[in-house]
Design a protein around this nucleic acid. Structure first.
Length: 279
DNA sequence: TATGCGGCCTGAAGGC
DNA sequence: TGCCTTCAGGCCGCAT
């Protein structure tokens, strides 16, 4: 499933392939994929004849910015969304939701099995008001704002489980269930640990683990753990392996203790009961 | 205000 | 073999 590294990989691919090419039209196969505007007709009319100037990423959101036009196309892949860059002749995948037709018979196709994914078209100054999730996002994990001091201050004030807090996009943007479990393992913190109970050494280790795990995943094209496909439909599969995610009952890669799985606020959490001490 | 939980959705996997 | 249930999970909206 797409988390920050996967979305970053998609963003880089889009910046290589889709810029400066005229959008000639499109097709909306599942109207509720459009979060804004609600009308497919309005959306297709607005997007026509535009050229993308650049793509950026904020948390798990993708944002396309246009030439000569202060507007933006927002995309959230949620659970199963994929953006594919291909020829318009390629047979439609069963779960194709929205198509954008570019010049030279090229196409940007949004395929999404579980239909949780969303697409927005908004005027520049309205972006945060319309894509409401954007304004709630905490700092990017690679930004100076995501400092030890920042993290310590936030954790100190919370009595939630650290696992739950890591999934809160308001703390830090872009972490999902896989990378949350992996970061907690790497920093030796039990997922049920109460955030305010962590000491400075643990907080520092957690921050470092988050940053290094995400960096590594981006370096391998976002394919470290998942069956994620980049916009060319390729899974790099560089052989990355999870420490704990999806490894219930299997031996810990450090101490061989069987990995355990626990539901924490409705989310599965994988951990090593020996390396991550309960508290 | 802060927190938790159900709903959305489909396909895969597990149980009987 | 086949049907039925459970699970997966990001985010929003609602209840507490």
């Amino acid at each position: 499933l797409p988390e920050l590294p996967e979305v970053e990989t998609v963003c880089r691919g889009l910046n290589k392939l889709t810029l400066g090419i005229k959008i000639q039209g499109g097709e909306v196969l599942l109207p509720r994929t459009l979060a804004y505007p609600v009308s497919s007709q309005d959306f297709l009319q607005e997007i026509q004849n535009r050229k993308i100037d650049s793509w950026s990423r904020r948390g798990k959101y993708l944002l396309a910015h246009f030439q000569d036009c202060d507007a933006c196309l927002g995309v959230h892949l949620r659970m199963s969304g994929q953006l594919l860059w291909l020829s318009q002749d390629i047979n439609l995948h069963k779960h194709t939701r929205i198509r954008l037709f570019f010049a030279n018979n090229q196409e940007l196709r949004f395929v999404d099995t579980r239909t949780f994914g969303k697409i927005w078209w908004v005027k520049g100054q309205e972006t945060d008001a319309v894509i409401t999730g954007l304004q709630k996002l905490g700092p990017e994990p690679f930004s100076p704002e995501f400092s030890e001091d920042y993290l310590a201050q936030k954790l100190e004030k919370s009595n939630r489980c650290i696992k739950t807090l890591l999934l809160d996009q308001g703390l830090v943007a872009g972490i999902g269930n896989i990378y949350a479990d992996e970061a907690l393992f790497k920093s030796g913190i039990h997922p049920t640990a109460i955030a305010s109970s962590l000491n400075l050494k643990e907080i520092s280790g957690l921050r470092t683990a988050i940053i290094t795990i995400l960096e590594k995943a981006i370096a391998s094209g976002g394919t470290t753990f998942s069956d994620f496909l980049n916009i060319m439909g390729v899974n790099g599969n560089y052989g990355g392996v999870a420490w704990v995610y999806g490894r219930k009952g299997k031996p810990c890669r450090v101490c061989e203790t069987p990995i355990e799985k626990l539901k924490i606020n409705g989310r599965s959490s994988h951990f090593c009961p020996n390396c991550q001490f309960p508290r």
